[in-house]
């Protein structure tokens, strides 16, 4: 199939970027979106041009490295899917596809489609440590965790930190990401000791960074590859208010 691409090209964060037009003629519908970009890069390399830079790692939808705006939607037209799990069968022969980097002040463009998402790591780092017993392997039932608790915690822990929530939010808020990280530990008995400090530090760090405020439009969950619930944001607010009252 023939695909027309409009790709954002930007040399570095200090230069202005703009859309460039490319056409690929032999795109296979079984290709993943990233394989299609590989194909474009191969053509560019053969012509001696600089390839389009984009983030990727596992290409299995679990690492959270890939992530671009495809036709104005984070990770493209399919809901709850990473860019690498989007395949060209989702497009038609002759389609024009816009490919842009995630946009947010907290995600400065490094080059082309590659953005710096260190700010998300900074939020996690602000959470600090979780106290655990060390030494010999503990007896399995020392800390009781019900199946429901474990599943609920894992629902939040499934966040892969791709940043689609920030990119899709009209306020560029990182509330879903931070909410997921806080809820993941808040739903388990481990780490309770640091719970209040962790929540306050993570939320304050999020506020200090260049993210906007959550206004509960719920767009983040729709585009989140892991379908992280917006209720984790409410849970973060609950944990934060609770921690502030005890602070």
């Amino acid at each position: 199939m023939k695909i027309h691409l409009k790709v954002w090209r930007q040399k570095n964060r200090h230069t202005k970027g703009k859309m460039h037009d490319y056409t690929l003629t032999e795109v296979d519908e079984e290709m993943s979106f990233l394989e299609m970009l590989d194909m474009l890069n191969l053509q560019l390399a053969k012509k001696g041009e600089r390839p389009v830079e984009f983030d990727h790692d596992c290409r299995e939808g679990i690492c959270g490295q890939c992530g671009v705006m495809i036709n104005g939607i984070a990770h493209g037209p399919l809901k709850n899917t990473t860019t690498c799990q989007l395949h060209m069968r989702s497009f038609k022969d002759g389609d024009t596809i816009y490919v842009e980097p995630f946009q947010a002040k907290a995600f400065p463009v490094i080059r082309d489609l590659k953005v710096n998402r260190t700010s998300l790591d900074e939020i996690i780092a602000a959470g600090g440590y979780v106290s655990v017993n060390t030494g010999q392997a503990p007896e399995a039932n020392t800390i009781l965790v019900s199946h429901e608790e474990a599943e609920n915690a894992f629902d939040a822990a499934a966040c892969i930190g791709c940043g689609a929530c920030v990119a899709t939010c009209k306020n560029a808020s990182a509330a879903l990401f931070t909410g997921a990280k806080i809820a993941q530990l808040a739903r388990l008995p481990q780490g309770k000791k640091e719970s209040n400090k962790r929540t306050i530090n993570m939320v304050n760090r999020m506020e200090d960074l260049d993210f906007g405020h959550c206004t509960n439009t719920e767009a983040c969950q729709v585009e989140c590859p892991q379908d992280i619930s917006v209720l984790t944001i409410a849970e973060m607010n609950y944990e934060y208010n609770k921690a502030k009252l005890k602070d």
Partner: peptide, 27 residues
């Protein structure tokens, strides 16, 4: 909050279809 969101949003997208994920009145 509106000023904060405007500052945080970056340059914006050339093609923007993010509206599909939320209600118009929420935005």
């Amino acid at each position: 909050l509106t000023i904060k969101a405007k500052k945080a949003s970056g340059a914006g997208y050339v093609k923007d279809k993010r509206n599909r994920a939320s209600k118009w009145y929420a935005r």
